[in-house]
Amino acid sequence: MRKELSILIIIIFGLFLGLIALDLTFGDPDNTAMDDYFIQNGQEQAATNNIVTTIVFDYRGFDTLGESTVLFTAVIGVALMYRKLVKGDADENE
């Protein structure tokens, strides 16, 4: 029963996504004003050739700060989880 319900949900979800996907056109995005601005002005505002790096670290630096925090938190979580398993490790980290 549970398995049939799961398959039904997956089929409905797939049809839903497929109908949306058939409507989209590939290779011709509509609203490109923001990206055109970045590509036109990124070189003089940040003095950088790589526009992706300009966006990651300059225009959207807050995103990257949050991303670094997520990575840091995940590594701290992994370290805390393994800490009890590894014997003789408790004195090293203190």
Partner: peptide, 20 residues
């Protein structure tokens, strides 16, 4: 500063981006 348009690239550019 970098000139606008395609260029060979200069390592000593970018402001704080290389530091980050």
């Amino acid at each position: 500063t970098v000139p606008f348009g395609p260029n060979p690239g200069e390592l000593n550019t970018g402001g704080v981006l290389p530091l980050m």
